[in-house]
Structures are given as C-alpha cells and as structure tokens.
Design a protein around this nucleic acid. Sequence first.
DNA 1: ACCTGAACACCGTTCAAGT
DNA 2: ACCTGAACACCGTTCAAGT
Lengths: 196, 196
Amino acid sequence: MSDRVRAANKNAEKALRADGRRNRERILAAAEELIASDGAQASLEAIARNAGVGSATLHRHFASRGALLEAVFRDGVAQLCARAADNPGTDPGAELAAWLEELTVYAATHRGLAAALLAAPDVVPEQVCCTAMVREALDGLVARAAAAGALNTGVSTGDLLLLANAIGVATEADPATAVRLLRLAMAGMGRPRRGP
Amino acid sequence: MSDRVRAANKNAEKALRADGRRNRERILAAAEELIASDGAQASLEAIARNAGVGSATLHRHFASRGALLEAVFRDGVAQLCARAADNPGTDPGAELAAWLEELTVYAATHRGLAAALLAAPDVVPEQVCCTAMVREALDGLVARAAAAGALNTGVSTGDLLLLANAIGVATEADPATAVRLLRLAMAGMGRPRRGP
DNA sequence: ACCTGAACACCGTTCAAGT
DNA sequence: ACCTGAACACCGTTCAAGT
C-alpha cells in the first residue's frame, strides 16, 4: 500500500523534465502554504503566482483542484495510514479510538483535507487517493475492534469516516475542540458515563 | 423571541417602497431556489439574475452573503426554535434528542444553512440571527436534560450545536444518514449499547 | 516536453447616473 | 428612495505560440 503510494509519486516526478519537476515542487510548496492560510478554497491563481509559474502550468501539472489537494496531502495521509497497521496491541477498541483521534487532529490541523476527503471520491480507477488509503486503514481497525466487541452495533467504517471528517471540517484549525468532540461522540453524549 | 423575529422581519419589509419590497421578495425566492440546488456558495450574480434585478440591487438589500442566508433561513429556523419550547413533556433527555434530530434534518435538507450556522457569528449587536435563536432554544433543552441527569457530563450546548452542524454539513442533502450518524454519536460509537 | 501570455467567460463589489 | 448599467479587480479554464 505504502509501496503503491511511493510508486505513484515516483511516476509523477520521474517522468518530468528537470524544469517541470522543479515547477511541480514549487507549486506544491505554494499550495501547502496558501491552503494552510486560506483553506481548501484557496485561489489557484494565487498559488501559481506564489510559485512563480503561469496558471496554465499549474493546470498542466494538476488537472483539478482535487488533484492538487490530493498531491498536497498524499504523503502525510500515507504516513498516518501506515501507523494504523503498526500497532500489534491487545486493545483493538482503544487502538481504533486513538487512530481516529489522530485522523481528526490531522484533518483539523491541515485545512482543506477534511473537505477534500468529504468530497465525492471522484476516483480514477486504480488511482491511489487519500480517501481510499484512509478507508483501507480504518477498515482494518474497525474489523479488529468489532471482533473484540468494542464497537457499537451498526457502526460502519463509513460512519466513523464521515464523523471524523465532519468534525474535522467543523473545527478546522482547532484540534483541541476536534478531539474533545470526537471523544464525546465515541463515548456517547446522551447519557452519563459509567465507571472510570 | 419569536416576537423579536417577527419585528425584525416587519422592519426589513415595512420600511421599503412597494417596488423595493417586491424586489426583496423576488431575491429571497431566487436565493432559496439557487441555494437549494447549488449550496451556500451559490452565485450572488446568478441569484440577482434569476430574480430579475441588478446585482447592485441585491447588495443594497443584503449587504453580505451571510445577511442573505440569514434572511432565507430565518423564518424556518424561528419555527424550529419555537417548537423547542412547546414540549412540556416529562422526558427531557428524549426531548433534547428529538429536537437535535429535527435540527440536523433541517440542516441536511436546507443546503447552506449548516455552513451559515458554522460560520463565525458575525453578529451585529442586538441583531436576531439564526445562530442566536438556535443556541437559545438548545440552551433550554440542554438545561432540562442536564438537570434530569440525561446528559453526559462535560457536554455543553456548544458541543451539541457543533456536532449537529458538523453532521449537517457532512451529510448535506442526505437527511437519513444525518439522523443515523447523530443517533450513533448520542448513544456512543465506541462500545456496545446495553438494554433497550 | 514544457512553458508562457493572452483570451474567454464568470464572479463580487462599488459607484455615478437615472427615475 | 430605490434602481440600473458600467466599471474594477479578481477568478478558473483553455489555447495558440514559443523554446
């Protein structure tokens, strides 16, 4: 999986001439910065301007806003997802909860990511996309948690993904609130907690 | 409260000349339609065009996109909030849950509302705004539920508002999913439910 | 192969000029 | 008092012309 991601990045970088590759990096750096400050709706024109390239060059490298967002977040999301498989622990429920918090914090601290994940997948078949990576990582954790009886009946991977993204969008740039809200939703808001 | 709302609308309508009032209604009708189909980011230009007025006229009536969204949703939200006070029931926890579901469904079926509620309040002092109405209505329900011990410790009105809006944004135009997600979050996702 | 500058259609905002 | 048309600065997308 992480191999697939690395291969996809190699493809995007290797097939370019030296100047093309340099421009691509500049665009990504500018995009990262502007998305951090302006959110997912950051102006593509401004990104191209900051990168010192024409707007047509940006569109040549990234056919759509979604493609650019994917490229900006792919590495970070891949690392996050790799961590989901690392834990060989003994408490699947706690591991699921901990990883969901990581995902939510990551979404809340990377403006535009949650919005991108929420958007219709828009997946070119065979393409490695953030949504697919996250879903795959989460699927494993959910399966183990469910097998251990640590998950409420009727809760699916899609539910948890939707919840984490919803909270990520709603609390963008406020990770503390994001985590608090996620924990409350996991534990339940409608009745007093029992025990420690 | 509902009086304040009615007064605010009277103010906005009464002080206008006949043609101004007619244009205002046309703009609101066009806005309702386009926001329903395009979401909260609907083009103001297109709204003015559909209403048959110049774009400057739209800006004269509604100084900002937020002001227009407020006007579009104010009546519906006021009715929703009025219903929060109607119930003299005996199960505050259930009443809170039921009203939160109503709010979430309303948000999910009125594209743009949740996004508008999530946006920074941006409240002109003394102005009746949707956020304030909802918060006031919810405050009452929360207080009664908390007094009855039906609410998880540490859950505030703001938490529930944020959660409902987050789910509303994430599931826009899919009220069934919105309700399912809200119920799961209220009951808790992280452990099996007990009893009926 | 990759880039640029320019063109196109659109947008939100503002203002002078109308009635 | 309220409206309009026009102007301004911006945007995303596309394309012919360059190297």
